[in-house]
Design a protein around this nucleic acid. Sequence first.
DNA 1: TTCATAGTTCCATATTTATAGAAATATCAT
DNA 2: ATGATATTTCTATAAATATGGAACTATGAA
Lengths: 127, 127
Amino acid sequence: MKKSSAIAALGALAQETRLDIFRLLVQKGPQGMAAGEIGERLGQPPPTLSFHLNQLRFAGMVTSRRVSRSIIYSANFKAMSDLLAYLTENCCGGRAELCAPRASAGCSSECAPPAPVQSRKSRRISV
Amino acid sequence: MKKSSAIAALGALAQETRLDIFRLLVQKGPQGMAAGEIGERLGQPPPTLSFHLNQLRFAGMVTSRRVSRSIIYSANFKAMSDLLAYLTENCCGGRAELCAPRASAGCSSECAPPAPVQSRKSRRISV
DNA sequence: TTCATAGTTCCATATTTATAGAAATATCAT
DNA sequence: ATGATATTTCTATAAATATGGAACTATGAA
């Protein structure tokens, strides 16, 4: 994944209405949901909703298809997983053992907090 | 994870310099890196860098600790994994079998594109 | 103390992003 | 055609975010 795509994806999701839209669509699954229904659920006026759906679409996080008068939006699951992979890429310099318990998908699950590092000489430090 | 935390995290990462910083720190692992070294690597003037480090810190994506004159920043791996979990939460309404091949961590790996939905009556549609 | 180093905060400016009314487009039913 | 529904584009305005110079704070060394 290119950096610019990741920034676009993150930026698309970093807004309350759009995050709501995206999670709604993630939960809805591949069948998707019509723009109108999304707007009803989230209480957004059509132009505002359309703006946000466009942002998500340009960022590649959703796809759309017309069905009769409705436009059906669906989450782009591939884009989501690519983004997650990008964020965790080469975690801990490849030495995932530095990332504590159940570091399954290359560190993405759960990593140790950086507190108890002190590799050799235990050095006392302040925050 | 609360929605506001997710938005803060996504917003923090949705900016080129900050994404660079975060990925650098993810790859560096728990030992972290001094602000100065980050600035050198990314070619950012100190005030700009400090601004972005603060954004990441307020969003909970990095932690900082002082070591002598340096301030060492580290990625917050827990925050990252919480964010990833939030994004994929209840994927496909819990029926992860709707999300195609190797849907390991609740859909986060790879999900089917929404193209071949057509649950019952195969309806021809245009895009 | 004084100096050099490492970072931060303050501030003004520039840029980007969000909101929603009004008008326009597309589809379907009559 | 005409009207109703579904959604978008246009537009102006408002709000949030990014940038970097100048000045400030904290730490350690001479």
